[in-house]
């Protein structure tokens, strides 16, 4: 294809996006669009899969049968999200095995929040309330993103996430209406998850390298700082209802702006965790790689069995 033809295709492509038309797998797309989407969708899929681990940590110790069932269902939903996000990613011409390979070798990233440990039951509440809450803020705009398979996957993901968020908040509410010991557990969880949740919405706009291009392709509709402000404005009143305190002495309602002012985020901590040195980065990777390696003989067997069955069919037919 000549340079002029490519330019022409690009112009048509950008115009379609500007008209809010969906781009589908078989449509022509610029290579950079394809790559950016593989990166973002796979990162999202990996986050769902790694995200199963901190919550899976409490399935065997859930305090009641109702909570155990709900937690199982939630972690199963996350596996399901991973599954259809990987499928959406595969429509861009990359295989699931390649994507796993990228995760297992550390080439692909996942949300840093899952590198923090879940050390009490209240963490199941805090993750649902804060982490899923922040995820929803990030993800709702993606239901209208330009790439069709991703947008459609996100519609379902968001519905389930908002259910998870309410479930998490309800765990917190139960703890806060419980004994002083339970309320203390809830406060402690908020203390530990608050700042990492704010970091989840990404580096400040000044540091964010992908924002401009992503806005154009509707992979992003608001900047990281706008999303963060929205999250804080929405979450602080919820903490008030719970009767627990957001661990930020600088947090204050600003009449003039109509938003909360908040304190400085420790970006050194953020980058440390992103670079692989958070409290659980190694544990999460070991768990994933270990499960994958321990499962090799199982996957090999399934392949071998399928081939044998196929041969039997062929020899029967001939």
């Amino acid at each position: 294809m000549s340079e002029k033809e490519v330019k022409n295709l690009e112009a048509i492509f950008e115009a379609r996006i500007a008209r809010d038309e969906k781009i589908e797998p078989k449509d022509w797309m610029p290579e950079k669009y394809r790559k950016t989407h593989i990166r973002q969708i796979s990162q999202h899929a990996h986050s769902e899969i790694i995200g199963m681990l901190p919550e899976g940590n409490w399935i065997t110790r859930a305090p009641s049968l109702r909570r155990k069932a709900a937690l199982l269902a939630k972690v199963q939903d996350e596996a399901g999200h991973g599954l259809y996000l990987y499928s959406a990613c595969e429509t861009l011409g990359v295989s699931r095995d390649e994507l796993y390979e990228q995760l297992h070798t550390g080439k692909a990233k996942y949300s840093s929040i899952f590198n923090y440990p879940t050390i009490t039951w209240a963490d199941m509440g805090a993750i649902g309330w804060l982490v899923d809450g922040a995820a929803i803020i990030n993800q709702v705009p993606l239901c209208n993103t330009s790439y069709g398979p991703y947008a459609r996957a996100m519609v379902r993901v968001c519905k389930e996430e908002s259910f998870h968020q309410r479930q998490g908040y309800e765990i917190m509410l139960t703890l806060c209406n419980g004994t002083p010991e339970q309320k203390e557990m809830a406060q402690d969880a908020l203390n530990r998850w608050w700042w990492p949740s704010l970091m989840m919405l990404g580096p400040t706009d000044a540091e964010s390298v992908h924002t401009e291009q992503s806005m154009k392709w509707k992979l992003k509709r608001k900047t990281n700082d706008e999303l963060r402000q929205q999250f804080i404005d929405q979450t602080v009143p919820q903490a008030d209802i719970l009767g627990i305190t957001v661990p930020d002495p600088d947090l204050k309602w600003n009449e003039e702006t109509g938003h909360y002012d908040f304190g400085e985020i420790d970006w050194d901590e953020f980058w440390q965790v992103v670079k692989g040195h958070g409290p659980c980065n190694k544990e999460r990777m070991n768990a994933r790689v270990g499960a994958w390696e321990r499962g090799t003989w199982v996957r090999d067997a399934a392949m071998a069995y399928a081939e044998k069955q196929e041969k039997k069919k062929v020899s029967k037919a001939s």
Binding site: I59, R294, R299
Partner: peptide
């Protein structure tokens, strides 16, 4: 429930969790 997130593939993981969920129900 102990296996959730540690299965040999995503599909078996989901199935195992599903069975666990049925049994707890």
């Amino acid at each position: 429930g102990e296996l959730c997130g540690h299965g040999p593939s995503l599909e078996t993981d989901i199935a195992g969790t599903n069975i666990s969920l049925d049994l707890i129900g």
